[in-house]
Design a protein around this nucleic acid. Structure first.
Lengths: 143, 143
DNA sequence: TTAATACATTTGTTTAAACAAAAGTTGTAA
DNA sequence: TTACAACTTTTGTTTAAACAAATGTATTAA
């Protein structure tokens, strides 16, 4: 009985914290004109260090599982932040690569995003952050 | 240096956990044809135990801060789950009240949602859930 | 080779969210 | 009273997300 309330409050807390964090980061990104999802894709691509990613790979690592990543990539292409080409080995697949301009945009955002992340977590000590990360990873990973 | 990575991973974890929880609950709600936001509003109204809420009150307590709650309420009215009337004391305000049908829908969902919440938190012990709730509340409340 | 199936991405359409502005109501000061 | 500002909700418009179906490519088995 008690545990049911606990679970409910915990899940509502997770939902609220997610929305809150989205709002924080979204506000920071707004001046750059890119959405949180777009930013996330750019960071995924930067992490590949020059190795192109196909759409599936990007989708798997995205924070928001959306049905329609094609049009998200389209937006990034319009802004010249990524390029897309057909994979030579398997023409069903595409290869997505971050451009120099994309890397620049990310580099300029890094400091701001770090500040935002610090602001979100400001009420927590480093030890508490570690605990939080660990607990969240338990419910997020490998499922 | 280390703490920057910690903050980044923690925030990304919060975002992912939020999306994951949304997906879980959203799937559970799908068969009832109501969205997570709509469900949340219904629960807010049920919690008022017959006392009507105006739009502001609902907005403040909503998980997702959206720009336009009017149309969300419209959807619930279409489904006869809530009613809306103009507040007599202050005609700028409206009064929103959950209907009997709305209460029935919620009651039927309660068990399913409890199962879903348990599934989301399944990798955590009760003690861990308490810790998680506490840490999340620190970054969510009063700001 | 051909047909059938699975795979990877794209496109069309409907639905909801984001943003900005408007409308109606109340309170206040001259 | 009247004009003005503040408050609360609604509406119009643009933009993105959700869902379903289609397109094009590769693989497999007959």
């Amino acid at each position: 009985m008690e545990s049911i309330e606990l679970a409910k409050n915990t899940v509502v807390g997770i939902l609220k914290a997610g929305c809150r964090a989205e709002a924080f980061v979204g506000t920071t990104l707004k001046s750059s004109g890119i959405s949180l999802q777009q930013f996330n894709v750019l960071r995924i691509l930067r992490g590949r260090k020059g190795v192109p990613a196909n759409l599936q790979t990007v989708q798997k690592r995205m924070i928001h599982k959306m049905s329609n990543t094609t049009r998200l990539i389209d937006k990034l292409i319009e802004k010249k932040l990524v390029v897309r080409k057909i994979c030579k080995d398997n023409r069903r697949k595409i290869e997505i690569l971050i451009t120099d301009k994309g890397l620049e945009v990310l580099d300029q955002l890094d400091a701001k995003i770090q500040e935002t992340e610090a602001a979100i977590l400001q009420p927590l000590s480093l030890e508490e952050q570690k605990t939080l990360r660990s607990l969240i990873n338990k419910i997020t990973l490998n499922r």
